[in-house]
Simulated assay, not measured.
Amino acid sequence: MRIGIIGAGALGGTFAALLARAGHEVEVTARGAGLEAIRSRGIRLSGGYGEAHARVAAGEALTVRPDLVLVCTKAQDAEAAISANAALIDGVPVVVVQNGLDGVDAAARLLPRSACMGVLSIIAANYTEPGVVRVTTTAASYLGRGDGPADDECRRVAAILSDAVPVIAIGGFRGAQWTKLIVNMLNAVPAIVGRSVQDVVDDRHLRRVVTASMRETVRVGIARGVRFGSLQGLGDRRLRLFARMPLAVGQLLPRLMRVRMGSVPNLGSTQQSVRRGQPTEVDFLNGVVVREAARAGLSAPVNAALTALVHEVEASGAFLPASRVLAEVPA
């Protein structure tokens, strides 16, 4: 099958290398040094899925109409990237592999003739050198759309992607997006202090901040009428219980997540963007919690403070001491 991948960073590069290894014809889009590296040396993948070296077609935009498209850009880049390829891909099934809550809806608006789906990926991958990806944590990914049960098209596309990595078609996708958003609360603090996710969770003071951001996110979701989807052992009942727990008890949740990560340092996607000097997705992670809270007539002070601190790090290019986080985040 001919598969187009828009955005060949950590996850895009992972999917591209593994789908090419599975025998699919892959074309990717990239920019700058990443594009130059892929054109000259291909995509080199290591870590949890083994070694793979994929020589794939690459350009700033897709050149051949694919049978399936994966959008793997950062959330803030998605609309521009989809628009740049819309004339070629409208009418082709599109899978948005992205953090945040709005990616599938944005793709459907820009590509009215396409069947648009989303993938929630728990794969952790480091992309700190152009064209080189190291998978630090393997995991199944979850594909779906809307609030209803998984449909035939979702199951068909999940089976295709499972040639490369396990992808499970699920129902209640919007609720699962909220569950993934809670998992993504692991990103902000490591990006602020410049330490791995494991180091942050192992620090009892910083772990308290991470827990507070997760708990606040769950409470906002509840206020917005969300029924949380099942993802990586998390589900609606467990998360509602977590929302009522004291912080001291609730810290068990990030500690359990840390166990799943293993020992290879996981920088988190937000910190990787900071280290590359690129804008982060924080407005679509912690920032979306603040916006959803406002829609419910609430405030989200923990996530508001974390969003501001990540933006400070983006602007300066310098990580902050942990004391700043502890002093400014009301946790």
Rank of each mutant, 00 (worst) to 15 (best):
E36S: 14
V183G: 00
A78E: 15
A296V: 12
G225I: 12
P254L: 03
T14G: 00
R215N: 01
A52P: 09
M1W: 07
T211W: 02
S121M: 02
P93D: 14
Q177E: 06
R65S: 11
G233F: 07
P130H: 07
V132Q: 12
V94K: 02
G194P: 03
A30N: 05
E292S: 08
R255K: 13
R227P: 02
A16Y: 06
D236R: 07
H24W: 08
R258K: 14
N266M: 03
R145Y: 08
A22K: 08
Q251D: 14
V96W: 01
D283M: 01
G221Y: 07
D203P: 05
Q76E: 12
R219G: 10
A293G: 09
G4W: 02
P254W: 06
A75I: 11
S316W: 01
A108I: 09
V274Q: 09
G225V: 11
R145Q: 12
L186P: 00
T137F: 01
T73S: 14
A17Q: 04
A158M: 11
V264M: 06
V290S: 07
V119H: 03
A322E: 15
R21I: 03
R215A: 07
R219V: 00
R244H: 01
Q251T: 13
L239W: 06
I89G: 05
G7N: 05
Q232L: 15
L161I: 11
R2L: 07
F15E: 06
A315S: 14
G12I: 02
K180D: 12
D203L: 05
S40W: 02
G7W: 05
A30Y: 04
G268K: 00
A84L: 09
V226C: 03
A188N: 04
V264C: 08
V313W: 03
D199K: 14
M245A: 11
V329T: 07
A33P: 10
H311A: 09
E281Q: 08
E27S: 14
G250T: 01
V220G: 00
I89S: 04
Y142H: 15
L181N: 11
A61W: 09
I5N: 04
V26P: 04
A10E: 02
I123T: 05
G262M: 10
L239T: 01
L253H: 07
Y127V: 03
S269I: 11
V95L: 05
P330S: 12
D163L: 12
V133I: 15
D283T: 04
A296P: 11
A169D: 13
V189T: 12
G32K: 12
H311Y: 06
A322W: 01
E60G: 14
E51A: 15
I82M: 05
E27T: 06
M1D: 08
L234M: 15
P265D: 02
N303A: 06
T211L: 03
A20S: 15
L309K: 06
C116D: 09
G48Y: 06
A61H: 09
R238A: 13
G148H: 06
V132L: 11
M117S: 05
L68S: 01
R224L: 07
R174V: 11
T137V: 11
T14W: 03
G91Y: 11
Y127L: 10
R255W: 01
E25D: 12
V167Y: 10
A30W: 01
Y142T: 09
A57S: 15
G13P: 06
L239F: 04
V119I: 14
V132T: 13
T138S: 09
L181P: 03
E60R: 14
H205I: 02
A294N: 04
K74R: 09
E292L: 10
